[in-house]
């Protein structure tokens, strides 16, 4: 796998949220606005990249049987660092994300990548892998947050586009809306992927008519 393939996989082919269905708790929990989704996605990306780097560095020094506990400690340390950093320098985001910041620890994506990728690869590919999966996760959360914010609050990244006091579809910023919006988003992405797969045989034939004349 080339570096660029490694980098792009997290956005579509192996997208954590839309394809692998991992990390669903923060995905549903914090995406009432696009900004929150992006913030959560970037915080997770930071932890993912750092833990992947460290795991790739120490993988040969860790005996197999204590591999998982060691990885968990590494991940938890970076999560605590993010937690303190956000609290000190971006208190607004810290309050918005609340409980879901310490819960980055138990985001299946992170331990999953450490175990299935970083513990078998060297530092550079592991870093790219973390960046790719993390940014793909951030992209998914921002998309879901944007959809929910548009429908539920009539704004994008806090910029309102409806008159004050206008009626919006409030259910989308409430818990049920999270499930429903994500359900339709995944269905839409499935449909897009199915369509992208179909035209391939057609595309292969397409060039023929041109040289015929």
């Amino acid at each position: 796998m080339t570096h660029s393939e490694n980098f792009t996989k997290g956005f579509f082919k192996e997208n954590a949220v839309f394809v692998l269905l991992l990390g669903m708790c923060p995905t549903l929990g914090v995406t009432t606005t696009a900004f929150n989704g992006l913030g959560m996605g970037l915080a997770t990306t930071f932890v993912l990249v750092m833990s992947n780097i460290v795991v790739a560095l120490v993988k040969d020094l860790v005996p197999d049987k204590v591999r998982i506990p060691t990885f968990v400690v590494i991940i938890a340390s970076f999560v605590a660092i993010v937690e303190m950093g956000l609290q000190a320098y971006i208190p607004f985001l810290y309050e918005q994300l609340g409980l879901f910041i310490p819960l980055i620890v138990v985001n299946c994506i992170i331990l999953g990548r450490a175990e299935s990728f970083a513990s078998k690869n060297s530092v550079l590919p592991s870093m790219i892998d973390g960046l790719s999966m993390g940014l793909g996760f951030a992209m998914a959360l921002t998309m879901l947050g944007t959809v929910r914010e548009i429908l539920g609050s009539g704004s994008v990244f806090g910029l309102s586009f409806v008159p004050q006091g206008a009626t919006t579809i409030l259910i989308f910023v409430m818990p049920p809306g999270a499930f429903i919006a994500l359900g339709y988003l995944i269905a839409g992405i499935n449909a897009l992927q199915a369509r992208a797969r179909k035209p391939k045989p057609v595309a292969a034939k397409a060039p023929e008519p041109l040289p015929a004349n």
């Binding site: 269905l21 049920p176 809306g177 999270a178 499930f179 429903i180 994500l182 359900g183 339709y184 995944i186 269905a187 839409g188 499935n190 449909a191 199915a194």
Partner: peptide, 13 residues
Amino acid sequence: RMKGVPISLILAG
């Protein structure tokens, strides 16, 4: 297109 995960999520909603 709704089979599997999407319909389950909507049901959960």
